[in-house]
Structures are given as structure tokens and as C-alpha cells.
Simulated scan of single mutants.
Amino acid sequence: MPHAKNWSRPIDLGDRRILRPGPLRWLRALGWMTALFFLIVLTAYPLTDFLGRQLPDKGVWPFLVHSAGAIVAILAYTIAVWLAEGRRPTELAPRPALLHCAAGLTIGAAVFTAVMTTMIVFGLYEVTLQGPVPAWRAAGLAIEAGVIEEIMVRAVVLRLLWRAFGPWAAFIVSAAVFGASHLGNSDSSLFAAFCIAIEAGVMLGAFYALTGRLWVSIGVHAGWNFTQGYLFGAAVSGNDYGPALAKSVALQDVPAWLTGGTFGPEASLPGLLICAAVGWATVWAAYKRGRFTRPQSASPLSSDLEPLP
């Protein structure tokens, strides 16, 4: 059984080198946030685009391509934090990764299943079984989105805004950024962006705050996307995840705000209400554990990874 410290700990916001205490630390945190965000964008996504053009878009290849982007994002973040912040990123500590990811995948699949079950029971969706099909593409896309987006939005934006302005401003702004980032997707809308900001922005940030690690948030994100795009065959934020076990289509005579329409169930009222409940329950659990009031930098005595000199 893993030691409790490996399951849950305060977020390590960073307090060395570029984030050392002193004048204008908030400004240094914002500058570093911007640089680190674009570092991830400019390393992970160009790699997947390049590999996607060079390799076949069938079989196991899409899984390998998208997984490569996720691995590069982890490596780029780890090296950048090691150099600029003088620490090993405990938010990506390998020891609890398997247990945390398994928990997150289970939670993500369960929450999305609850959303779809609600809409099916109330006659908002038509679901048609299609039979077994390869899951490689959907699994690769889910892993890529889970890893890269959680690093960018939670480990970079939320953490460094927290370092600069405190937890509540960080939650509000990072959730808004995550929602707004989906406005360019197919069939998006302001309501869809609002739903994603509340659902994922709060819920995934809350799991990060509660555990001090990214792995649960990554697992929830990937588990939700895979269940949505592959098991149910619904649109994922306006995107098609390819071959799926079923095909889920929102009824056309029902308002889009109830079903999410062609954007997908994330933009639905049931999705908003269920994910908001899970998210705020997790925020409350983190609050009760003092995650928003205690010092949020790791101590060498409480960490399973020693800080760099």
C-alpha cells in the first residue's frame, strides 16, 4: 500500500530560482507561465503533426503518434521546471502515477457514463450499438488531450497563477482560459465554453489541488474523452474520435443546451450539473484538508523527490 504522502500532498508552487521570494515574484511567475505554456505548445503539437503526416493513419500508429506528443510534453515540462525552478516536479512524480491514473480513468468514465445515462433516460440521445472496432485512435487522442492539456492548463496556468495571486484567482482564470480555448472548435458556442470552464476547469483543477499531483486529473480527462468518443461514440468537443463501439446522436428537436448538440455532451445541462457537483465536492474536500490555506511549497522532509540544489 503506498504511503499516504504519495497519494495526497499540497501543490508545490515552486519557490526557487525564477520563483524565489522577493520583489515582483508575481510578475516573474506570470512571465514564466507564458514562456512555459508556449514551450509545451511548440514542442508537443508540432511533433504529433509531423509524425501524423509521416506515418499511416491506421492500426496502432495513431496511438503511438499521439502518445509521443504526450511523452514529449512531460519531458519538456520536467526539464524546463528542473532548469528554471530548481526542482524536480513532484506534480509528475512517477511513484504514484499508476494508482492515480487508474483512479482518474475510473472517475472520468463513471462521471461521463452518469451524464449519458441521464440523457438517455430522459430521451435526449439516441444510442446505436455498432460492434467491436479498434480503440487505438481514440485511446491515443484521449491520452494526448489528457496529458498535454493538463500540463498546460493545470500545471502551468493554474499553478503559476496560484503562485502569483492565490488559489481562487487561479481557479477562476485557469477555468476561463480552458473554456475559451474550446471556442474555436467545430459547433462551439459561448454556452459550450462556459460548460467546459465549469465542468473541466473546476473539476480537474480540484483533483490537482486535492492530490498535489497531475495524474488523477490526467486520468479523469483521458477517461472522460475515451468513454465519450469510443464507448459511446459521441462528439468530443466538436471532434470525431473515429471508430467507436456505439453511435450517440442528440435528438434534433431538443434544444442544444440540453444535449450539447453537435458539439458533444460536455455542452449539455446534465453534463454541467453533474460535473459541477463532482468538482465542487472535490474543491470542498481539498479545502477541508487545508490545501488552500497552508503553505503550498513542498518541504524536503515531506517530499518523495528532493529539491535540486
Results as ranks from 00 to 15, higher is better:
residue 49 D to M: 12
residue 139 A to T: 10
residue 239 N to K: 10
residue 208 Y to Q: 09
residue 5 K to G: 08
residue 198 I to V: 15
residue 262 T to F: 02
residue 116 M to T: 06
residue 242 G to K: 01
residue 82 W to I: 04
residue 185 N to E: 13
residue 95 R to W: 07
residue 274 I to R: 06
residue 36 L to F: 06
residue 231 L to D: 03
residue 284 W to V: 08
residue 298 A to K: 00
residue 96 P to Y: 09
residue 188 S to K: 02
residue 93 A to Q: 06
residue 190 L to Q: 12
residue 267 A to N: 07
residue 189 S to L: 10
residue 309 P to C: 02
residue 194 F to G: 03
residue 242 G to I: 05
residue 4 A to C: 03
residue 246 A to K: 02
residue 8 S to N: 08
residue 301 L to H: 13
residue 196 I to T: 13
residue 2 P to E: 13
residue 219 G to M: 11
residue 237 S to A: 11
residue 193 A to Y: 07
residue 212 G to N: 07
residue 167 P to N: 09
residue 57 D to M: 11
residue 97 A to F: 04
residue 243 P to Y: 03
residue 262 T to L: 10
residue 287 Y to P: 00
residue 24 L to S: 11
residue 120 I to T: 15
residue 51 L to S: 09
residue 225 N to D: 14
residue 172 I to G: 12
residue 109 A to T: 10
residue 78 T to D: 09
residue 59 G to H: 12
residue 111 V to D: 08
residue 49 D to Q: 12
residue 157 V to G: 00
residue 267 A to D: 05
residue 277 A to V: 12
residue 142 A to L: 01
residue 134 P to W: 09
residue 245 L to S: 06
residue 45 Y to V: 15
residue 260 G to P: 09
residue 66 H to V: 00
residue 225 N to Y: 02
residue 240 D to Q: 10
residue 43 T to W: 13
residue 118 T to W: 13
residue 64 L to Y: 09
residue 294 R to D: 12
residue 86 G to Y: 03
residue 5 K to S: 15
residue 277 A to N: 06
residue 193 A to M: 11
residue 247 K to D: 14
residue 158 L to A: 05
residue 2 P to I: 15
residue 177 V to C: 07
residue 154 R to I: 11
residue 209 A to Y: 03
residue 147 V to H: 00
residue 202 V to R: 00
residue 297 S to N: 14
residue 276 A to W: 05
residue 254 V to R: 15
residue 168 W to G: 08
residue 299 S to E: 11
residue 99 L to S: 14
residue 118 T to E: 10
residue 47 L to P: 04
